[in-house]
Every structure is written in structure tokens, then in C-alpha cells.
Computed example of a mutant assay.
Amino acid sequence: MSKTVVVLGGAYAGLHIVHALLKKNDKNVKVILVTKNSHLYWNMASVRAIIPGQFTDKDLFKPLADSLKRYPAESYELVIGSAEGADFDAKSVRITTAAGDRTIAYDQLVLATGSRTPSDDVPWKAHGSYEEAVALLQSTTDKVKAATHIVVAGSGPTGVEVAGELGYEFGKTKEIILISASDKLVNGDISAPAAANELKKLNVAIKYGAGVETTRPSAADPSKTEVVLKGGEVITTDLYLPTMGLVPNSEYVPAKYLTEKRLVDVDDFFRVQGTTNVWAAGDLVCKPRAGFMIAQKQAAGVAKNVELALADKEPLPVKGLPVDILGMAVGRGRGAGRLNSFRLPSIMVWLAKGRNMGMPMMAGYLDGTVA
């Protein structure tokens, strides 16, 4: 009897899982990929893409249809739409597409819808369709080019990378301020001093202990933004780029399967707690944390467990990374990071990430060799 696997989300984790299942060439299994974005968005490079002339849209966005056409047409379906509801008891998901609503039944379901930024005005994540993502990225690039004063809020890895890219390109011609709510970057990670030192070299001013309370248009000039800090200080800027926080794309998941932070609650097999045939991977899950390489390992484990479930076999615990690694590109020439408790030399982070923002890996995601 033919079985259906539905994968919700076509980014790093979801596409990895789809490729892994389709490569098995099981004629009794059909894989349905549901995604808002018709293209794979290499958002790891989004922090550099806001710098004019660094990447084209064709560099960063690749059609998922082209990625999947190597497989027999009857073995998969690509649905451009968004999940609006899921009934894990009835084994079905409700999808909204341009042609209308559709309910899809499944035998195995994978949740890989990832996360989004709290603000829909920044391009670090794809919030909606391909067209919307491209337009937002271009709009942000235009604003960066026109601005003479830029405030980057949030001193996590994304904030450090955004500030670093801006400093590398414009540190001598534009005023760039990085706002950190704490007294150290990256929440006090051991890589924080190195990151701060690299940003200083790029003429990025860092304002510590100054979380953002709110923002508002300037009364004197509505084209500018007033950034109100928690201590009451107001900074008027041409461009405000927030990088704080992630919001899980979990609205379609019944509340009882979510944690207090709206993340999907999974067991050691990355099966959704309280289910037998629903799995999850990537930024959407409750453990251990969001991260590109972490999602990759999770996707490999979930793909294997879906394969085992289809064969009526017991799942295996999903293994995480053997080491805890953090790497931040700080401009196009340097980097900062660590491997466990060992600080990595700038040149190592640059070679691994900063040199090309992982772009060479994109081909492997598209042709399935990563899976």
C-alpha cells in the first residue's frame, strides 16, 4: 500500500529530509513538500547580502522545483502554500495555497517550518513567499546604501555579523552603532572579546547595557527612526536594523504539543511528544538551540527515523553535534568564534564561514548530496 510523507517547510532541514527520502527510490512512498517559499533562501548570507553588490538574487534564491525534478514525477509533489492547521489524530494538515485551501492526509508528518524574526522589516529570515523575500532584501539593501547613520540592535551572532558587514564596507563613511542589552556581546560567550575587538577595528561603536525599549518615527523628520533605549536615551538614526530573537513558526500546531515558548516538544527521537508519526527538526524544536549545523544533524536523524517508521521499525535517538561550535563572520576579512571552550583564531572562522558565508554548500542542499 502506498504511503504519504508530508514535510512542512522547504528550508535547510525540510529540503534535507525530502532529498533523503526521495533518494531511497521507494515506489511505495510519496513525499509532499509544503512550503511558503518556492525557492531555497540561503539566509546564512543575508547579513552580507544587505551590502550593495555582494550577492544577486540568483545567488541567494534557487528554485525548489529545479532541485526536485531529478526524481520521478510520481514520487513527490511540491505545494507552494502555508500550513494553517494540523490534526494529529486525524493525520491531516490544512494548507492554504493561491488556489484555495486544501487538506492533505499523511502517514508520516515532518514539521520543519523553522522560525522568523519578530520584525518583518528585516531579511535575516524568509517570512513569506519568494517574491516577498526578494523585495525585502532589495529594499533593505537600498536603505543601507542611502543611510549615513545605522543602528543595529541585538548583540547575538546575527547582530555581530550585521554590524561587521556594515563596518567592513562603510566604517569610514557611515556611523554604525551596535546596541547590546548586556555588558558583553553574544551573551557573554568566550568569543565576545574577540568579536568586540574585530568590530572596533571596523569603526563600529558598541553601546553596552542599553536594550531597546521601543522605536518610533522622528517627529522632526519622519524618514528617520528614534530608537528609545531602556534608560531613556534616544538615538535618531537613518536606518534601524533589529536582530533580536526568533519566533517559531508553530501557529498551526495544536497547543498541547508546544512548550511555553511555542516550540515543538520532541523526544530523543525528535518525534513530537504524544504522537507516533509526527516528527520535527530545525529552529522549530525545543532542543538544544537554533543553529545551521544543529538543524543539519537533526534533519539527518529525522529522515532516518521516518524511513524506519515507514518500514514499521523502531526509531533511533537523534545524535547531536559532537562539539559545540560558534562562528561569526566579522566583515569580509575576519571572524570570531569558539570550539567548545577553545577560542578559534580569526583566520579559521574566516576560512570556514566569513570567506563566502557557506555559499559553496548550497549546491549540496539543492542536489541532495548533503542528505
Rank of each mutant, 00 (worst) to 15 (best):
V144R: 00
G331H: 13
Q138P: 09
P157A: 07
V29N: 00
H16A: 09
N356M: 11
A220H: 08
P360N: 10
A45C: 01
E165H: 04
D267M: 09
L241K: 08
E77T: 11
Y240Q: 07
Q108N: 14
L326E: 12
G154W: 07
N187H: 15
D183A: 12
E131S: 10
K304N: 03
A210H: 01
M328R: 11
P72W: 06
T113W: 12
I104G: 14
D367S: 03
M359D: 10
M293P: 07
V31Q: 06
V151L: 00
V349F: 14
S341T: 15
N25D: 10
G156E: 00
H149F: 09
A281F: 13
V18Q: 03
A112N: 06
A363L: 09
K319R: 11
K256E: 14
A300W: 04
H127T: 07
S38L: 08
K69R: 08
D265S: 14
R216M: 05
Y252L: 06
V186G: 05
G167I: 06
D66H: 08
V122M: 05
Q298I: 06
Y240C: 03
T225P: 00
D87G: 10
R102V: 13
A11G: 07
A192C: 06
N305I: 00
V318C: 02
G14K: 01
A73G: 05
R102Q: 15
P248L: 14
R343E: 15
A73R: 08
V34F: 08
R343F: 15
S38M: 05
V330Y: 15
L111A: 13
K184A: 02
Y41M: 08
G9Q: 08
L68V: 03
R94H: 15
I32G: 04
V228I: 04
K313S: 01
A49M: 06
A147L: 01
L229N: 03
K27E: 10
Y208V: 01
V253N: 05
L15W: 04
A49S: 12
K353D: 11
S75M: 09
K230V: 04
L351W: 15
V278C: 12
I104P: 11
L15H: 04
A352E: 08
S82T: 13
H16I: 06
G209N: 04
Y76I: 01
T225K: 00
V162W: 00
T214F: 15
L316D: 05
S129G: 02
R271V: 09
T141M: 02
E132Y: 06
G301S: 09
K304W: 06
H19E: 07
E175D: 10
V110E: 13
M362A: 09
E307R: 05
E132F: 02
V34E: 13
D238P: 04
V264M: 12
T96R: 14
R102K: 15
I50M: 10
S92N: 13
R355E: 06
R334T: 15
E132P: 01
G335L: 13
L246N: 14
A147P: 01
T113C: 12
S46V: 00
R334S: 15
P63H: 05
W350I: 07
G354D: 10
L22D: 02
T35C: 07
Y240I: 02
E161W: 03
N203R: 03
A45V: 01
A194C: 10
V253D: 02
T113V: 12
K230A: 08
K36L: 05
